[in-house]
Design a protein around this nucleic acid. Sequence first.
DNA 1: AAAACATATCTATATATTTAGATATATAAA
DNA 2: TTTATATATCTAAATATATAGATATGTTTT
Lengths: 100, 100
Amino acid sequence: MDIVEISKVLSNKTRVNILKWLKNPEANFPSHQDIDHFDDGVCVGYIQDKTGLSQSTISTYLNSMQNADLVIPTRHGKWTYYKRNEQVIKAYVESLKHDL
Amino acid sequence: MDIVEISKVLSNKTRVNILKWLKNPEANFPSHQDIDHFDDGVCVGYIQDKTGLSQSTISTYLNSMQNADLVIPTRHGKWTYYKRNEQVIKAYVESLKHDL
DNA sequence: AAAACATATCTATATATTTAGATATATAAA
DNA sequence: TTTATATATCTAAATATATAGATATGTTTT
């Protein structure tokens, strides 16, 4: 739980948006083709489409978010799904509340 | 209350430390020469000494923190005192709690 | 009014972040 | 087992941030 590292992730509008969108995938993304739920989050392609940024940029963003433990990736066939790590997000906010 | 702008401030260890130190000036800084309280916060020089960074760097940091509304400056003679803006800090944490 | 002091701003350099194109890798489909 | 698809990594260029020295500004003191 590194406040500085997580704050770096949050210091970019697109990454903040991704986290917000993943809070409610049904409302923000199309359904997946292979599975009928969002239990493991949303695939990279959908996130890329929604942001309008390049595939490599989004992959890099998701990687930085994963390094900060803010999201959890799950591989399903050729897709990688990303979901929020609610525990860490909650711990970060609590940490700010107490320490900051 | 701009989440991205505030997160940028918090994405640097020194700036986070400054905010933490200002939470309890009595414990973290020497007494001021001209006044016997910390009601308006701490002067730039003391903050600079504590960080060990250059005067211009600290001035730039404090300016960015002020632009993000995280601190409030007050001029007392030739000194500028900086104190936390508790309202904005609280609003930011609440905002993360609800929106993030 | 001059000198001294605290802080802010300017200028410049080093490092980091942003972003995308090209390429590599992993999996699925034909 | 070749081809197509999804994602990750590499490379590079543009922009932003970090940092300090030099200079400017505002205030106090002499």
